[in-house]
């Protein structure tokens, strides 16, 4: 069976001054083959740290990660990574970018570009195979980056807030496309996000994380049938459930009044609106 086992992962950093900061601790997770997992939490909760350790980009301070029983000691062809900022090479064409993983594995030019073009064709990007990344929009760049990760046929897809920089419409389309790819290939996906809606939409299980120090707070089984209807009561209830579990993290229930601010700005009470003020529309 092909699966990811994460055992008691811990990561500490030394900061200037000699003290240690705990970025991640007590992180354990068993991911089944073909399972879609979202790591959800605020920034600084260690979710990307956990992802990078699984990727082999970062060394853990303690614990271990196994993919198909094999201990992770560094990056490997069984795992591919999709970066938040796409990380495409501007000097390579779209097809060459998609083929970069294959090139790194020693594939010859013709077969690797053929494979890249075939993948791009399925994703409706074949028109842009010979374009440079700068000619593409953010959404298309991220799709190329996903194609690059898929091209090496990894067992596990690691994704670090891949859609965070996109507008809401493009994000919705890419989420849809990612699910189509996932259903077609049955890849195991570990997906980091800070977007509750995104997690509920995509994941089989949502790992809710908490910061300072980064650790797991709870795991939400997200068994809503697919395709998920984002307007259904069950969906909204799930979103609310996750949101409530994140409540403290989001600072909810600690409403601040900021009374002093008005004093600093020289107005104890709100000033009446002025006639003809020109900056109102801004």
């Amino acid at each position: 069976m092909s699966r990811v086992e994460i055992r008691n992962l811990r990561k500490t950093y030394s900061v200037p001054g000699g003290s240690q900061v705990v970025a991640l601790q007590d992180f354990s997770l068993d991911i089944a083959t073909g399972e879609f997992i979202c790591l959800l939490g605020p920034s600084g909760c260690g979710k990307t740290t956990a992802l990078n350790i699984v990727a082999g980009l970062l060394k853990q301070s303690g614990g271990e990660v196994r993919v198909d029983e094999r201990k992770v000691t560094g990056p490997g062809p069984d795992r591919a990574y999709v970066f938040q900022d796409y990380a495409l090479f501007p000097w390579l064409t779209v097809a060459e970018n998609v083929a970069f993983g294959l090139e790194s594995q020693g594939w010859q030019k013709t077969p690797r570009l053929e494979r890249a073009r075939a993948i791009l064709a399925v994703m409706g990007l074949d028109k842009f195979a010979d374009a440079f990344p700068k000619q593409l929009s953010g959404g298309m760049r991220q799709r190329v980056s996903i194609a690059r990760a898929l091209a090496v046929n990894p067992k596990v897809l690691l994704m670090d807030e891949p859609f965070a920089a996109l507008d809401a419409f493009t994000r919705a389309q890419l989420q849809d496309e990612l699910l189509s790819i996932w259903e077609a290939l049955n890849k195991t996906v570990l997906f980091v996000t800070h977007n509750i809606d995104e997690a509920v939409q995509l994941a089989d299980r949502i790992v809710v994380m908490t910061s300072r120090p980064g650790r797991m707070k709870l795991v939400v089984e997200n068994d809503l049938p697919r395709p998920r209807d984002v307007t259904s009561p069950a969906y909204l209830e799930r979103v609310n459930q996750v949101r409530a579990s994140l409540g403290e993290e989001m600072g909810l229930g600690h409403h601040k009044t900021y009374r002093g601010l008005a004093d600093i700005l020289g107005a104890g009470v709100p000033a009446p609106a002025q006639e003809g003020a020109s900056h109102v529309a801004n």
Binding site: P75, D85, W91, S104
Partner: peptide
């Protein structure tokens, strides 16, 4: 740094990384 991370993730050999990534970058 992101280019370096791509090279690490895909296990690109040093000489190829140099020619295909470092020099153009």
């Amino acid at each position: 740094e992101q280019y370096i991370r791509v090279v690490k993730v895909f296990g690109t050999k040093p000489l190829r990384a140099f020619l295909r990534v470092v020099i153009p970058a």
